[in-house]
Computed example of a mutant assay.
Amino acid sequence: MSNPGGAPIHKDQLKAKYIGTGDADMSKFEWVTNMHRDTFASHIGHYDHLSYYAVATNESVGRTKKEFLEKMLRPCGRPNVGEKEEGYDKLING
């Protein structure tokens, strides 16, 4: 891979730029949470998708957007008891 200037991009730079790319140490909960957040962000960013969901749920577009934004905070609930604690701490503390 390379950027527009022609210089190659290292995978660590990609991981820093795109948080949800994941790695071998990423837990299933973190991966699913990133996928859900990306999906909600895509629906919010594409007005046609947002208006489709608003019509389907018989709500206004603004209310649907607000609900999607609120779901992005914790899209998958709390992690299971068996999850790695350091992964959970990383997820909560940023």
Results as ranks from 00 to 15, higher is better:
Gly82Gln: 11
Phe68Glu: 08
Lys28Ser: 05
Ile19Cys: 00
His46Asn: 13
Ala16Arg: 07
Ala24Gln: 13
Glu86Tyr: 14
Asp12Leu: 14
Gly94Asp: 10
Gly62Val: 03
Val32Leu: 15
Gly82Asp: 15
Ser27Ile: 07
Glu85Thr: 15
Gly82Leu: 13
Val61Phe: 03
Met35Asn: 06
Gly6Thr: 05
Phe68Arg: 05
Asn80Ile: 03
His43Thr: 09
Ile92Glu: 11
Val55Glu: 11
Asn80Glu: 14
Asp89Asn: 13
Leu91His: 04
Met26Asp: 06
Gly94Tyr: 03
Trp31Asn: 01
Leu73Phe: 08
Gly5Met: 14
Asn93Lys: 14
Lys71Trp: 10
Thr39Glu: 02
Thr64Gln: 02
Asp23Asn: 15
Glu83Pro: 04
Glu59Thr: 11
Trp31Lys: 03
Pro79Ile: 05
Ser2Trp: 07
Asp38Gln: 07
Glu30His: 01
Lys65Ala: 14
Gly5Ser: 13
His36Arg: 12
Asp25Arg: 13
Leu91Lys: 03
Glu59Phe: 00
Tyr18Val: 08
Arg78Asn: 10
Val61Gln: 12
Leu91Trp: 09
Thr39Asn: 07
His46Pro: 00
Glu85Met: 15
Asp23His: 11
Tyr47Met: 03
Tyr52Gly: 01
Pro4Arg: 06
Glu85Ile: 11
Ile9Asp: 07
Lys90Arg: 15
Ala54Asn: 08
His46Ala: 06
Asp23Tyr: 00
Asn34Cys: 11
Gly20Lys: 02
His36Lys: 13
Arg63Ile: 05
Leu14Thr: 13
Lys28His: 07
Pro75Tyr: 01
Glu86Lys: 13
Lys71Arg: 15
Ser60Val: 09
Tyr88His: 09
Asp89Cys: 04
Gln13Arg: 11
His49Val: 04
Lys11Ser: 11
Gly94Cys: 07
Met1Tyr: 14
Glu59Asp: 08
Asp48Leu: 15
Glu86Pro: 00
Leu73His: 13
His36Met: 07
Lys28Trp: 05
Gly45Met: 09
Met35Cys: 09
Ile44His: 01
Glu85Leu: 15
His10Gly: 10
Gly87Asp: 08
Arg78His: 08
Gly6Arg: 06
His43Trp: 14
Gly82Asn: 14
Asp12Glu: 14
Ala56Gln: 14
Ile44Tyr: 00
Val55Lys: 15
Gly94Thr: 06
Lys90Ile: 01
His49Phe: 04
Glu85Lys: 15
Gly20Cys: 12
Phe40Glu: 00
Gly20Leu: 00
Phe29Ala: 07
Phe40Trp: 09
Asn58Thr: 10
Leu14Ile: 14
Phe68Gln: 06
Thr33Ile: 04
Leu91Phe: 09
Leu69Met: 15
Lys28Val: 13
Ser27Tyr: 01
His10Ala: 13
Pro79His: 04
Thr39Gln: 00
Ser2Ala: 12
Pro79Val: 10
Met72His: 05
Lys71Tyr: 11
Lys17Trp: 10
Ala7Asp: 13
Val81Asn: 11
Ser60Cys: 06
Lys90Pro: 01
Ala24Ser: 10
Arg63Met: 08
Tyr88Ile: 12
Gly5Asn: 09
Val32Ser: 04
Ser2Val: 13
Gly5Thr: 09
Leu73Glu: 12
Gly77Tyr: 03
Asn34Glu: 14
